[in-house]
Design a protein around this nucleic acid. Structure first.
Length: 559
RNA sequence: UGGCCCAUGGUGUAAUUGGUAACACAGCAGUUUUUGGUACUGUCAUUCAAGGUUCGAGUCCUUGUGGGCCAACCA
C-alpha cells in the first residue's frame, strides 16, 4: 500500500548506540565519540578480546570518532613488554588502527600520584597500616579502620614515604575514605595504592608504589578525554567508584558502559585454562590452530574479516552470550568462499588407472580458480593415465540412486577433465581396494563436452606423476562438549576432544609447490586449508581451517 | 547472606520506545549446480512464571523463578 511506505530498513542500534544517540541529543559531551581499548599487557589476546576491540573501534567509527589503544599497566608483577608487542600485532592484524594514539597508564603515574595527593588534602584518602587480613575483616564487619581519621598532614607525609621507598611491600596502602557501610563493598574504603618494589616494563625502577585499577582507569579515561568507556559486565559494580573518584576531583568524566563478554561453544577462553592446555602439552602453544587466541586463529587460517563479521553478527548486549561455533565457522566459510582459490588435493588417495588413456601422455587442463570471482583467472593442471582420487569417492558395493561418486559401471566427471566410467577394481590380500580401472570419453573434455553424457557427480583428483606430497593437519573442535567449563565437579579437560588433531599425508596438485605461509585455498569438495608457518621449501604443511559444509555425510550418518 | 545486573525460537541479536515478534547462524524440506560447496525457495517462537496498569504489554509496575557478577594491596 502506497501510504504505508516503510523507511528502507531502518537501522537497528544496539543498546550502547542508543545511549550514544541519547547523549548526542542531550549534549552530554561536546565532542565526538572517543573510545579506548585498554588491555593489560599480561597475556595474549583471544576471541573475547576481539569482541571488545570491535565494539570500541566500531562505535567510534560509526560516529566519526576515534579510538585509543591504552595499555593498562599498573601491575609490574604480571606485565611484560613482549605482550605489548603481541597485542599490538594482533590488533593491527584484525585491521584496526589507533594511529598515533598509543598510550600507557604508566605514563600517567606522576599525574595519578598528584591526584591522590589532592584527595588526601581534601581529607578523602588516608594511609592505612593495617594488614590486608585486618582490612578484609573490617570490610566484612563494616568497621572503620583506626587509621581512617589520621590527620591530613600525617597522611601526606606517609604517602610521600610510601612513594620514596621507606616501607616494604605490604606495610601500608593508600585508601579512599568513602563509606564503610556502603552496600557496594567496593565503596568500603578501597585501596588505591600499594607498595611493590618491582621493576616495571615501562617505568623501570622509578616507582615503588603502583595505583590500583579503580584509581588509574577512570583517571586515565578522563585524561584522554574518552567519552564512552566500554568494558565488560564484571565492572558494573566498579562504575560507582569510577564516578566517585572523578567527581571528587572535579575532573572531566567519561561514561562507563558495560556489555557482556563473548563465549564460543566448544572452547574455553580463561587464560589460566588455556595455559594449562599448553603446559600439559595438549596443544603446542598460544598459537596452536585449535586455540581461540588471535594468533591461533591466524595460524588456523581464519581471516580477520571473518572474525570481525562473526562478532558483528553476534551483536552487543548485557546478556551472557554463548555463541555456536558454527556461527564463527559460517563467517569463515563466507569470507573464504569469496576469496580463496580452488585447488585439488587428495587426502586419502586411491589409485585410478584410465585404461584407454595413452601411457606417458600428459595434458594440461585449464581450470578456473574461483567460480565466485572471475578476476581470479585460471590455471593449468596436468592430467595423465594414473590418477589419485579420494578413497571415499569409490565404493565396491552397488550404490543407491543418491550415490554421485564412482562405482563399477557408473559415470562420473573428473573436475575440469573428462567423464569416466568405472570398469573394475583390484583388491589386495586384505580385501582392500588397491586400484580402480576406468575408461574415459575423449569427446567429453571439460569446456568442450560433445559426449551428451550427464554424469551425476564430479570428483576432484590429482595426477600421480605430478602430485606433490604434503602434510595436512586436520583440526576439529578442541572439546567435545559445548560448554566444557559448565559442569560442576568435572574438570574441563575431561571434555577434550581426542580427535582435535589428525595429521595425514596427502597429495596436492603441482601448482602448490611454491605457496607461502598464510596462503589459503579451498581444496575442492573438502574444505579450506592454509599454509602453516612451519612449511619449508619442499616440505608442505597445510592446516585445515574449516571443512566445507557437508550435507551428504551428515545425512548418511543419520540413516 | 547482602548488593548490583540479566531473562525474546536450538544459538545470538532486533522490534519505530506501549500498537500486535524481524534478521543471522544451526536444523528440516526442496530448486539450481562440472565442488553433495555456493546461490535461491519454503519451514521452524507469541517473548521465564503469576498477578497488575491499559482499548492495547516483549516493552511499564509488583512478586516469584532461573542465571551472572562483586566482597584481591588483580585488571
Amino acid at each position: 500500500m502506497s501510504h504505508n511506505i516503510k523507511e528502507e530498513d531502518k537501522e537497528t542500534l544496539n543498546f550502547i548506540e542508543h545511549i550514544v544517540e541519547e547523549h548526542n541529543k542531550n549534549g552530554r559531551f561536546n565532542q565526538k565519540v572517543h573510545t579506548r581499548f585498554p588491555p593489560e599487557p599480561n597475556g595474549f589476546l583471544h576471541i573475547g578480546h576481539a569482541k571488545a576491540i570491535c565494539v570500541s573501534f566500531d562505535l567510534a567509527q560509526k560516529y566519526g570518532g576515534l579510538t585509543n589503544l591504552r595499555f593498562d599497566d599498573t601491575n609490574p608483577s604480571t606485565e611484560k613488554i613482549d605482550f605489548v608487542e603481541s597485542i599490538k600485532k594482533d590488533i593491527k592484524w584484525l585491521g584496526f588502527d589507533w594511529e598515533d594514539r598509543l598510550y600507557f597508564t604508566s605514563d600517567y603515574f606522576e599525574q595519578l600520584y598528584e591526584y591522590a595527593v589532592e584527595l588526601i588534602k581534601k581529607g578523602k584518602a588516608y594511609v592505612d597500616f593495617s594488614s590486608s587480613e585486618t582490612m578484609d575483616e573490617e570490610k566484612k564487619k563494616a568497621i572503620e579502620s583506626k587509621y581512617r581519621n589520621t590527620l591530613i598532614e600525617s597522611n601526606l607525609l606517609e604517602f610521600k614515604k610510601m612513594k620514596n621507598g621507606v616501607y616494604q611491600d605490604g606495610t601500608c596502602s593508600l585508601r579512599l575514605k568513602i563509606d564503610m557501610q556502603a552496600d557496594n563493598w567496593l565503596m568500603r574504603d578501597p585501596v588505591i595504592y600499594r607498595i611493590k618494589h618491582e621493576t616495571h616494563h615501562n617505568t623501570g625502577d622509578s616507582w615503588c608504589i603502583y595505583p590500583m585499577y579503580d584509581w588509574a582507569h577512570g583517571l586515565s579515561d578522563s585524561i584522554e578525554k574518552i567519552t564512552h568507556s566500554l568494558c565488560s559486565l564484571e565492572f558494573e559494580v566498579h562504575r560507582e567508584l569510577y564516578d566517585w573518584c572523578l567527581i571528587q576531583l572535579g575532573v572531566y568524566r567519561p561514561q562507563q558502559i558495560e556489555f557482556s563478554r563473548l563465549n564460543v561453544t566448544y572452547t574455553v577462553t580463561s587464560k589460566r585454562k588455556l595455559k594449562e592446555l599448553i603446559d600439559k602439552g595438549v596443544v603446542s602453544g598460544w598459537d596452536d590452530p585449535r586455540m581461540p587466541t588471535i594468533s591461533g586463529m591466524r595460524r588456523r587460517g581464519y581471516p580477520p574479516e571473518a572474525i570481525k563479521s562473526f562478532i558483528r553478527r553476534a551483536g552487543v548486549s548485557k546478556r551472557d552470550q554463548y555463541i555456536d561455533l558454527s556461527s564463527l565457522e559460517s563467517s569463515v566459510r563466507d569470507e573464504l568462499n569469496k576469496t580463496a582459490s580452488r585447488v585439488m588435493g587428495v587426502l586419502n588417495p586411491l589409485k585410478v588407472i584410465i585404461t584407454n588413456y595413452p601411457e606417458g601422455k600428459t595434458e594440461q587442463l585449464t581450470i578456473i580458480n574461483n567460480p565466485e570471482d572471475e578476476t581470479k583467472g585460471s590455471r593449468n593442471v596436468p592430467f595423465t593415465r594414473e590418477i589419485y582420487i579420494e578413497k571415499e569417492d569409490f565404493t565396491t558395493e552397488t550404490p543407491n540412486k543418491k550415490w554421485r561418486r564412482l562405482a563399477v559401471d557408473r559415470n562420473v566427471r573428473f573436475k575440469g577433465a573428462y567423464i569416466l566410467t568405472c570398469t573394475g577394481f583390484k583388491t589386495d590380500v586384505n580385501n582392500e581396494v588397491e586400484e580402480v580401472y576406468c575408461t574415459y570419453y575423449p569427446e567429453s573434455k571439460s569446456g568442450n563436452d560433445q559426449s551428451g553424457i550427464k554424469p551425476k557427480g564430479t570428483l576432484h583428483w590429482v595426477s600421480i606423476e605430478h602430485a606433490i606430497p604434503a602434510k595436512v593437519n586436520i583440526y576439529d573442535r578442541l572439546f567435545s562438549d559445548e560448554n566444557p567449563t559448565g559442569h560442576k565437579d568435572i574438570d574441563f579437560k575431561e571434555f577434550l576432544n581426542p580427535q582435535s588433531l589428525k595429521t595425514i599425508s596427502a597429495f596436492v596438485e603441482p601448482g602448490l609447490a611454491n605457496v607461502l605461509t598464510g596462503d589459503i585455498f579451498q581444496f575442492m569438495r573438502l574444505g579450506y586449508f592454509c599454509v602453516d608457518p612451519d612449511s619449508k621449501n619442499g616440505k608442505l604443511i597445510f592446516n585445515r581451517t574449516v571443512a566445507l559444509k557437508d550435507s551428504w555425510s551428515k545425512k548418511q550418518k543419520g540413516k
